[in-house]
C-alpha cells in the first residue's frame, strides 16, 4: 500500500522563535488579534508500507533520526492512504 506521511515539526515552546515574533508584530499592526505566533514546517513523504500503522512508525523514525532535532523541536506524524 502507498501512504503519504506528514510530519509537522515545531520549535519546543521554550525555544525562542524570532521569525514567529516578527510575524506576530506585523499581524498585530494589520489589526488582527494575534499572540504566540510560532512558525514550523510540514514535511510530506510518500512511502510503501503494509499498513497505516507501519507507515506511521516509519514516519516517527524519520522524524526522530533526521526530520526533527529533539534538542529544540517537537513533532507529530499523520498518515493518509493514497
Amino acid at each position: 500500500m502507498r501512504y503519504r506521511i506528514a510530519v509537522e515539526v515545531m520549535l519546543k515552546p521554550a525555544i525562542l522563535d524570532p521569525a514567529g515574533q516578527a510575524t506576530e508584530g506585523i499581524l498585530q499592526q494589520m489589526g488582527f488579534s494575534a499572540e504566540d505566533v510560532r512558525i514550523g514546517k510540514r514535511i510530506t513523504v510518500e512511502t510503501e508500507a503494509d499498513s497505516a500503522a507501519a507507515a506511521e512508525i516509519a514516519g516517527r523514525q524519520m522524524a526522530e533520526k533526521l526530520l526533527a532535532n529533539p534538542v529544540m523541536e517537537d513533532f507529530s506524524v499523520s498518515v493518509v492512504a493514497l
Binding site: 521569525a19 515574533q21 516578527a22 532535532n69 534538542v71 529544540m72
Partner: peptide, 17 residues
C-alpha cells in the same frame, strides 16, 4: 557535529533574528 551527536546541544536561530 551537534546534528551528528558528536557534540552535545544544538544551534538555533539568533535571538535577534
Amino acid at each position: 557535529l551537534c546534528e551528528r551527536g558528536l557534540l552535545p546541544g544544538a544551534l538555533r536561530n539568533n535571538a535577534s533574528g
